[in-house]
């Protein structure tokens, strides 16, 4: 199941085109833009968690670095967004490198804690450095994106922009997974001991994928900031980091399509749950627990398992894939 043919990409493109031209409702476009941005976050984090097997509970900080960098550069200093984009991505990458160097030496829960600490510090910086970030009341006046005469002001145009970027990142991720580097990454996930013994410089590789996922998160932050044009620290708090992890795990780790599925569900779920009004959080929590209890390998793989199980009753699918 690892190697879905490019037919997946074609279906993806068709689905995006169809949705883009059939939908008229601005609200839906807005929602789908958020799904796209969350998909980017999940894709980047999935490379780190699903493939390299390293957890991060602080990725919202990179998301925030992307958003705040572009906000400050464009609104405060009058940069063009397209000049701010590389700055945002580079800054997030540089921070990821410096933070990752000591943090990725940790493993398991300790790594989770280290990244959690970093994420909280990021959030506190966004909130407290008010001369630069606007503090807890937020940052207003981020300009929308334009390329020459094309302005990405409408929901539809931004929808196409975001989902084109998503497609690009999906292709990059899949190329990465199926490469020398990707195999080495996956080998760390399965057995770091053997990976090192066969000559993989696991520390350097973990650091590189950490930087990659931070860069993707910063890209998502850039797209977010220029879409909503107003950002506040609450978007990048601990719960945001946890939500990113949840998207990856709920969708199914080590699967690009799982990340997409996870982002879809976790973005749309709160919208559906509005119907429950005050029971919203209760139901959300229950769904989260329920999915993990029933399908610990995530929805994508979990449903595939159920499907395959029904098709070939005799299969001994005791779960050799992610079974650790």
């Amino acid at each position: 199941m690892r190697r879905l043919p490019p037919i997946g990409h074609i279906i993806f493109i068709l689905a995006v085109l169809l949705t883009g031209f059939l939908i008229e409702n601005t609200y839906y476009f807005q929602l789908l833009v958020f799904v796209g941005i969350h998909t980017l976050l999940a894709l980047g984090l999935n490379m780190l968690m699903g493939y390299a097997g390293q957890i991060s509970l602080g990725h919202a900080a990179f998301y925030g670095i992307g958003a705040y960098t572009t906000a400050i550069l464009t609104a405060t200093y009058g940069f063009s967004p397209w000049a701010a984009l590389p700055c945002a991505v580079l800054l997030a990458s540089a921070v990821a490198y410096v933070v990752g160097l000591p943090t990725l030496k940790l493993s398991g829960y300790y790594l989770g804690m280290g990244t959690l600490g970093f994420g909280m510090i990021g959030f506190i910086v966004f909130r407290e450095w008010s001369s630069l970030t606007g503090g807890s009341s937020g940052f207003v006046g981020i300009p929308p994106l334009e390329i020459g005469p094309v302005s990405f002001y409408s929901g539809r145009s931004y929808f196409f922009l975001v989902w084109t970027v998503v497609l690009g990142i999906i292709i990059l991720c899949r190329r990465l997974i199926d490469s020398r580097t990707g195999r080495a990454l996956r080998s760390i996930h399965d057995s770091e001991k053997a990976s090192r013994a066969i000559g993989v410089d696991t520390m350097a590789l973990k650091l590189r994928v950490f930087v990659f996922s931070a860069a993707v998160a910063a890209l998502a932050g850039f797209l977010y900031a220029h879409f909503v044009t107003f950002i506040s620290p609450g978007t990048f708090d601990f719960l945001a980091s946890v939500r990113m992890v949840t998207m990856v795990v709920i969708g199914g780790m080590a699967s690009v399509w799982g990340a997409l599925l996870g982002a879809f569900l976790l973005t749309l779920l709160p919208e559906w749950l509005h119907a429950f009004s005050e029971f919203e959080m209760v139901v959300y929590g229950l769904i989260l627990m329920g999915v993990m209890i029933v399908l610990p390998r995530g929805l994508f793989r979990g449903l595939l398992d159920v499907f395959e199980g029904a098709r070939e009753q005799t299969a001994k699918r005791s779960g050799g894939v992610n079974g650790r």
Binding site: S187, A194, V200
Partner: peptide, 19 residues
């Protein structure tokens, strides 16, 4: 025996070429 169990037989050997 420390194999990369989620990877195919061929991929295991391919990781061996890493260095």
């Amino acid at each position: 025996v420390e194999l990369f169990e989620s990877m195919t037989v061929l991929e295991n050997v391919m990781v061996g070429r890493h260095i």
